[in-house]
Nucleic acid binder design. Sequence first.
DNA 1: TTTAGCAACGTAACCGATTGCGGCAGAAAA
DNA 2: TTTTCTGCCGCAATCGGTTACGTTGCTAAA
Lengths: 346, 346
Amino acid sequence: MSREKDITIYDIADKLGVSPSTVSRALKNHASIGSSTRQRIITMANDMGYQANTFASNLRKQKTNTIGIIVHELNSNFITSVLSGIEKIAAQANYDLIIAHSSETSKKEAANASNLFHKRVDGLIASLAFDTDNLAHFKQFRDKNIPVIFFDRVFEEMEGTKVVINNFKAGYDATAHLVDQGCTRIACVTSNLKRNVYSERLRGYRQALQDKGMHYDEKLTIVDGLAEEDAIRSAKKILAMKPLPDGLFITNDFCAAVIMQTLKDAGLHIPADIAIVGFNNDVISKVIDPKLTTINYPGFEMGQVVARNLLNHLRGGWNINHTNTVIIKSELIIRGSSLKKNAGPQ
Amino acid sequence: MSREKDITIYDIADKLGVSPSTVSRALKNHASIGSSTRQRIITMANDMGYQANTFASNLRKQKTNTIGIIVHELNSNFITSVLSGIEKIAAQANYDLIIAHSSETSKKEAANASNLFHKRVDGLIASLAFDTDNLAHFKQFRDKNIPVIFFDRVFEEMEGTKVVINNFKAGYDATAHLVDQGCTRIACVTSNLKRNVYSERLRGYRQALQDKGMHYDEKLTIVDGLAEEDAIRSAKKILAMKPLPDGLFITNDFCAAVIMQTLKDAGLHIPADIAIVGFNNDVISKVIDPKLTTINYPGFEMGQVVARNLLNHLRGGWNINHTNTVIIKSELIIRGSSLKKNAGPQ
DNA sequence: TTTAGCAACGTAACCGATTGCGGCAGAAAA
DNA sequence: TTTTCTGCCGCAATCGGTTACGTTGCTAAA
């Protein structure tokens, strides 16, 4: 039970007959400490197993060297890639990360935001939850001039820095590809249109149809959740369409996988009967049959961009309120699920 | 740039003409503060938007109310379920979480451990990385009597608390099921045998074969990584076996999915030619075709058990060094990929 | 009327690192 | 020899809560 006492700079100072301030300065390579003294201190600190007390330091410096991250979920390949990217850059700059996830609910997102604020993170990175419709819980950061950067799920009209892909173009490309494959009746399965990612992809879909001389039919657009049960429901709606669509643009790979499975169970052939394009290039897209045509969403790169951007703010150079949108490149990856033209009967 | 000053208990004390200690005590419902004074203080604190400074508090209390978690990866359904379970229990007890992931490398695991130690977490929860072969980086916690609990990936012979499933039994059940389905030549694809989960599953596989009167053939066991490229390599090894096996026990769902896909690409039929059983009941098991028979690994429940156990240590009652292994129930979920007996020709 | 006794607060010493300011010795300049 | 720099380092305040201990004023028991 007895937890031994930690070594402090006072212990080191006593042993060496110097003052604590000298130890403090020596340990951070302050210029005004003689090199021999510095060496003795550093050696002694190592010998004694000194570990700086973060709380004392943070308390005094009013700064934590910590970046808070709020994501909508953890269990997607895309998100974990982003986290890796952020981590890489943050580690180089000696920043720590605290990762929180909102489980797609605005309520938990707000709780996480307060918690991270309370923990006094130096900066915040966030991707909005499914049902977030106001940014009040981020206001406290703005008020204290703590930089907040959004990625992926953002509010378009919001001030501040955002890092996104061109969801419009991605939706456009996906749809145009289906048209090029000969599809004439293309349905779109997407999700909460309050989220930029879904509304923009839908906009791209509509624009592509228009440019290709096809008219947009509202009945062919399904807006629902992305979980398994939602996807099954969407699949049933598709099966109930008369006539059946011959192409599907589904704005999420997992959802696309479930829908594809459900359609196959119903006796349909992919892509012969219905061609499918997903979104995200999740690992799942490569292990289903046929493999899923999808949009590559480069999470690792996005994470790095986000982190670098935040660090620039933190170093003080950049104006926090300056609206700055960074667009990451994404592209269509063509696989079997959409190749109608040279596809055999399964 | 100018970040405004935070409200402190001194500010509140001044406004109310009481002492800071009274404010401190009032805000945490200390008994020795009159209820009217307490009310005035709480009201004023809210009005002024007071937020306690965690660092000052932690510094003084020598305690952080934070639990550190090190997992091998984030992008698996199982792990995120465990995290949810931990979070639920921890939140109830007002503990915060810091989640770190080792990306399956012992090196990052050690770095994370040091970092969390340095952050002075009150307790640690960990699942070992793929290649961890010693626990030196956890020693610092033991030395300071900070409880550490391992789950899923553990060292069997290690002291301390562990929360696991019965991997032996799971491997046994999976294999026995394949035998019952009429398989006579069952291969096993597993991973690093230094990790208890894989070695135990393999042991269960061998025992089941023996009990069913079949002999163990070393050539039918493949030990490799679990990433996509590893799985493809394993699939090729399987395809090169002569004669081909008619049953596969693969100790990971994602790996099983990739192998199944590769085998199908090679013209084999599942389960008619080869029956397959996976492990984890990951979402992926339900969206591949045929759906994967697998072992249900109840992550959410496991997370709750782990957290509750840790909290008991933290509350001081339990002896940290007392070896205590908790076994969570798991069971076989039978789906199409292994149903040879009543399976048509795909 | 005295004196315990207690409820309700205040005082001040921490927790450990950081840092502005100042001191002191030896070297260089006058 | 005296003065002025520097280089190197110590003093002490500070960050914001927490808490052991002491101090009030008032009630109830002696």
